Amino acid sequence: MAHYFTDQSEVEDRPFEIHFDLMDRSFSLRSNLGVFSKDKLDEGTRLLLENVLKEQEPPKNCLDLGCGIGVVSIVLKSFWDTKMTLIDVNDRALSLAKENMG
Score class of each variant (00 low, 15 high):
residue 96 L to N: 04
residue 72 V to W: 07
residue 8 Q to P: 15
residue 24 D to Y: 09
residue 35 V to D: 09
residue 55 E to Q: 14
residue 55 E to G: 03
residue 11 V to L: 11
residue 76 L to E: 02
residue 52 V to Q: 02
residue 2 A to F: 13
residue 48 L to E: 13
residue 83 K to A: 15
residue 57 E to L: 14
residue 98 K to N: 09
residue 25 R to D: 05
residue 16 F to C: 08
residue 50 E to D: 11
residue 6 T to A: 13
residue 71 V to Q: 01
residue 87 I to G: 02
residue 80 W to R: 08
residue 101 M to Q: 08
residue 49 L to E: 08
residue 52 V to R: 03
residue 94 L to M: 11
residue 36 F to K: 08
residue 56 Q to P: 00
residue 28 S to T: 15
residue 25 R to L: 06
residue 29 L to R: 05
residue 29 L to E: 03
residue 11 V to A: 04
residue 74 I to A: 09
residue 14 R to V: 11
residue 92 R to I: 06
residue 39 D to S: 14
residue 33 L to I: 00
residue 98 K to L: 08
residue 7 D to Y: 10
residue 79 F to Y: 14
residue 101 M to K: 05
residue 1 M to H: 12
residue 93 A to I: 08
residue 82 T to V: 15
residue 62 C to G: 05
residue 4 Y to E: 09
residue 94 L to T: 10
residue 64 D to P: 02
residue 3 H to G: 15
residue 47 L to H: 13
residue 12 E to K: 14
residue 20 F to Y: 09
residue 33 L to N: 15
residue 5 F to W: 14
residue 10 E to C: 08
residue 97 A to Y: 01
residue 69 I to Y: 03
residue 69 I to K: 03
residue 85 T to E: 14
residue 57 E to G: 02
residue 61 N to C: 09
residue 93 A to S: 10
residue 51 N to I: 04
residue 89 V to A: 15
residue 22 L to F: 02
residue 53 L to D: 02
residue 21 D to G: 14
residue 36 F to E: 04
residue 17 E to P: 00
residue 27 F to L: 05
residue 11 V to N: 08
residue 6 T to M: 13
residue 29 L to A: 07
residue 25 R to A: 07
residue 15 P to K: 04
residue 100 N to A: 06
residue 29 L to V: 05
residue 71 V to E: 00
residue 36 F to W: 08
residue 7 D to K: 12
residue 42 D to T: 07
residue 95 S to M: 06
residue 18 I to G: 01
residue 14 R to I: 09
residue 62 C to R: 02
residue 98 K to I: 11
residue 31 S to C: 10
residue 16 F to I: 03
residue 101 M to T: 04
residue 85 T to M: 13
residue 40 K to G: 11
residue 45 T to N: 00
residue 86 L to K: 10
residue 96 L to R: 05
residue 39 D to Q: 11
residue 41 L to A: 03
residue 79 F to C: 03
residue 8 Q to V: 05
residue 24 D to H: 13
residue 20 F to K: 07
residue 96 L to M: 07
residue 21 D to E: 15
residue 15 P to Q: 05
residue 44 G to N: 00
residue 102 G to Q: 12
residue 31 S to H: 10
residue 101 M to L: 15
residue 54 K to M: 11
residue 14 R to Y: 12
residue 36 F to Y: 13
residue 89 V to H: 13
residue 70 G to E: 01
residue 54 K to S: 14
residue 10 E to P: 02
residue 46 R to T: 06
residue 60 K to W: 00
residue 37 S to A: 14
residue 1 M to G: 14
residue 30 R to V: 09
residue 71 V to M: 00
residue 53 L to K: 03
residue 5 F to K: 13
residue 37 S to R: 01
